[in-house]
Every structure is written in C-alpha cells, then in structure tokens.
C-alpha cells in the first residue's frame, strides 16, 4: 500500500527583498517576488523523497490563498507533487492561524485524509509557526516540529506504523518515534529541495490546480475568515528608524580604530 502524503505550502513575498522607503516610511513592494515559502520547499522535498523510495506514494500540495497562488502550486507539481489544491475564497480572507488551520484541516479531510502531513516550520511573512500544529490538533494527529532529519518511515504494511525523526532544540536535539498518521514540520536543514525538472514543468502545465471555496469545504463564517478569527490586528505601523549616529573619521585604518575606541570609551559603556 502506498502512502498518501499532504504537504501544506504557502506563497509568500520574499521578505529579504523588501525595503523601506526612507522618506515615506512605507514598504516598497514593487519588484518584490512571490515565492514558495522556503521551509515549505523542505517539507515538499521530504514528501518527494518518500515518493522516490515508494513510487506509488501520492503527494498532494495544499495551500490557502488568493488565485495568484496557483502559479506556486504549479511549481510544486513541477518539482514532483502529483496534484495541487488551492483553498481560495473571499470568505477565507483575513483568517488568523486558528481560522486558517480550520480551513486547511477541512481541505485535508475533503481529500479523504492521509498518512502523513508535512508543513514548513514557519512562513517568512508571518513567522508564527502556528498553523502546522493547529492543523494537527484539529485533525487529532500527533505532531513533531522543528524536524531536521527523518531517520525511518515505517511502511504501512508494517504493524508498528511509526516514523523516527530528529527534532532540533536550542541546546541539542531529541530523537522521537511518532505514530503515523502524524504531522511533521520541516526546518531548512532537513534537506536540499530539488529543482523543477523540464519534464516536470511540462507535466505540471498539463495539470489543473483544484480550487475549493469555503462552501466546498463545508466551513462557515464561524470557522474561517476575519470574523471567526480569535485574534485581530489592533494597530500596525512601520518601526521607527533610529537614525544615523556619528561617522568615525580618520586618515589611516589605525586612526579610525583609535578614534572609534576613544568614542566608545567616552560613552563609558565598555
């Protein structure tokens, strides 16, 4: 029997490419590319590596977002995912992590469930790391987060139904055996995501991204969207820029160094 794997992915703006307009103090968005969230690429790669071993494995990528996210999902299929589902509806807009995980959990249930769910540890736009664990909770699955290595994946014919993974901690790591089905969140060191292949791109372009709306998922305004979300944005603002300090001058490197140290000393901090 083959594995059914779902990978949760998100299209994000490349936050490394964002700059602040120094005068207007607003975000400069022009030319900021939308990308597959980096940790999600590792999550997808983990699923594809299982598929490399067990070719009958079915890998489905699922995302929630605006229609533009279809392009990213097509890229995921070009990397090797079998199919892609996009949850897209104005009614889903403004969902916080609680509401987002409701929608994604409903989407995964509509897919008929699965044996494994992979997600990125966190997305670079929100950085919350909450949606993965909250999907696991809503599907009543065990989870392991911050996974940096997958050691063994018990086959489904195996009675044990477990996998062994390495979860990183700030001060080391732990090896964890977890029951399948489960949800795993991937960090960057888990693997090196593959590139799209030419053949993969060709095949992916022949495939449609399935789009489901809130009604298809059977979720309503008490579960998804802005009004259902327990958290709301109260205010938002750009951080104030501290402003340039003093430029140290000097004719030689030695003079620059000495002048800096004199300035430091005068502050009596060191």
């Amino acid at each position: 029997m083959a594995f059914k794997i779902v990978v949760c992915v998100k299209q994000v703006p490349d936050t490394n490419e964002i700059k602040i307009d120094p005068i207007k103090k607003t975000l400069i968005r022009e030319g900021v590319p939308s990308i597959l969230n980096p940790d999600d690429a590792n999550a997808l790669e983990a699923a594809l590596q299982i598929k490399d071993e067990l070719p009958e494995t079915e890998v489905t990528v699922i995302s929630m977002g605006p229609p533009q996210a279809k392009a990213m999902l097509t890229e995921c299929m070009a990397m090797g995912a079998d199919r892609a589902v996009l949850l897209s509806d104005r009614a889903l807009g403004g969902s916080d992590t609680w509401a987002t995980s409701n929608a994604l959990a409903a989407g995964i249930q509509k897919l008929g469930g699965c044996d494994l769910i992979f997600a990125g540890q966190q997305a670079i736009d929100g950085d919350t790391a909450q949606v993965g664990p909250q999907i696991a909770e809503k599907l009543a699955l065990p989870q392991v987060t911050y996974v940096s290595k997958i050691e063994t994946v018990g086959s489904l014919s195996d009675a044990s139904h477990t996998m062994t993974v390495v979860r990183t901690l700030e001060d080391g790591y732990e090896r964890i055996k977890v029951q399948i089905p489960c949800l795993i969140t991937a960090i960057k060191t888990l693997n090196e995501p593959r590139y799209m292949s030419v053949r993969g791109i060709f095949d992916a372009l022949q495939k449609e991204v399935t789009v489901w709306q809130a009604a298809d998922l059977g979720v309503d305004a008490t579960e998804v969207g802005l009004d259902a979300s327990p958290t709301n944005v109260y205010r938002s603002f750009t951080p104030a820029v501290k402003g340039r300090g003093q430029q140290i001058t000097g004719d030689t490197d030695r003079e620059l160094a000495v002048n800096l140290l004199q300035a430091l000393k005068s502050k009596q901090i060191v």
Partner: peptide
C-alpha cells in the same frame, strides 16, 4: 522550540487566540 510547539496546540484545543513572538 518547546513553547512554540506547545502554545499553538493549546490555543487550538481551547479555541482561543495566540500571538507569536
């Protein structure tokens, strides 16, 4: 790595909000 594993799970079970970081 422990707080960020635990808190979202607790928030989802209690159906309450959680603000990260």
């Amino acid at each position: 790595h422990i707080g960020r594993d635990l808190a979202p799970r607790v928030a989802a079970r209690l159906n309450t909000g959680l603000t990260a970081d």
